[in-house]
Simulated scan of single mutants.
Amino acid sequence: MEKGDYYGSVKYYLKLDELTDAVLNSDMTSMMKSLTVTGFNAYMEVERDRFIKAANYERTDHRMDQRNGYYERDFMLSAGKVKLRVSRTRSGEFRTEVFERYQRQDKAFVLSMAVMVVNGVSTRKVTNIVEKLCGEQVSKSFVSDVMKELDPEIEKFKQRSLSHSTFRYLYVDAMYIKIRENNHVISKAAYIAQGVNEENKREILGFMVAEEESTTAWSRFFMGLRARGLQTPKMIISDAHAGLKTAIREVFVGSIWQRCTFHFLRNIVDQMPKKNNKTERKLVEEILRAPTQQHARELKAVFEEMVQDNPKFEKALEILDYGFEDAIQYQLEPQAYHVSLRTTNSVERLNREIRRRDRVIGIYPNVASAERLIGSLLLDYHEEWVKAGRQFSRD
Rank of each mutant, 00 (worst) to 15 (best):
K275L: 02
R88F: 00
K178C: 10
D27R: 05
K278P: 12
V360S: 07
V347W: 09
P233A: 06
Q391T: 13
Q66T: 04
R168P: 15
A42F: 04
I319K: 09
S346C: 13
R59V: 12
R63V: 13
K312Y: 12
E72K: 07
T261I: 15
S255D: 02
N276H: 15
D27M: 09
G120I: 10
K282I: 06
R342P: 03
A336G: 06
E131R: 15
T246V: 13
R352F: 12
Y330D: 04
I186R: 07
F109V: 07
D5V: 05
L317R: 05
T216M: 12
A210N: 05
H295R: 07
S376Y: 02
I179H: 03
G195F: 09
L288G: 05
F109L: 07
Y57H: 12
E333K: 09
R357P: 04
E199C: 09
F94N: 00
A42E: 04
R289S: 11
E45Y: 01
L205C: 01
I177F: 11
E181M: 04
C260V: 05
A42M: 05
L320F: 01
W385C: 01
I361Y: 13
A327F: 01
E58Q: 12
F94S: 00
R202V: 05
S122K: 11
Q335L: 13
D65R: 10
K245N: 11
R297A: 03
L379W: 06
V253F: 10
L320I: 01
V46A: 08
E305D: 12
L150W: 01
R372M: 02
R168T: 14
A190I: 06
V367A: 00
S163L: 13
T29L: 15
T20K: 10
E153T: 04
A227E: 15
F252I: 02
Y102C: 00
V360H: 08
G92D: 02
F109P: 05
Q335D: 14
M235S: 06
P273K: 02
V115T: 08
P311W: 12
S219K: 14
L19M: 13
G120E: 08
N183W: 08
T215Q: 07
T123N: 04
A336I: 08
G69T: 02
F142Y: 05
P334S: 06
G4W: 03
F262A: 14
K188T: 00
R88L: 00
R85T: 02
P291I: 12
D74K: 04
Q105T: 06
F94G: 00
A22N: 08
W218N: 10
L133D: 01
T246D: 10
F99D: 03
V196K: 12
H338Y: 00
D309L: 15
Q293H: 09
S78T: 11
M44T: 01
V307E: 00
E72P: 03
E47M: 08
Q391M: 09
V360M: 13
E149M: 10
R355K: 07
R220Q: 14
N267D: 11
M116K: 08
S78E: 10
K188F: 00
Q391L: 08
Q258V: 11
F75C: 04
I363G: 09
E72Y: 00
V172A: 04
M208G: 04
H241N: 11
V130A: 15
R168I: 04
R124T: 09
V10S: 10
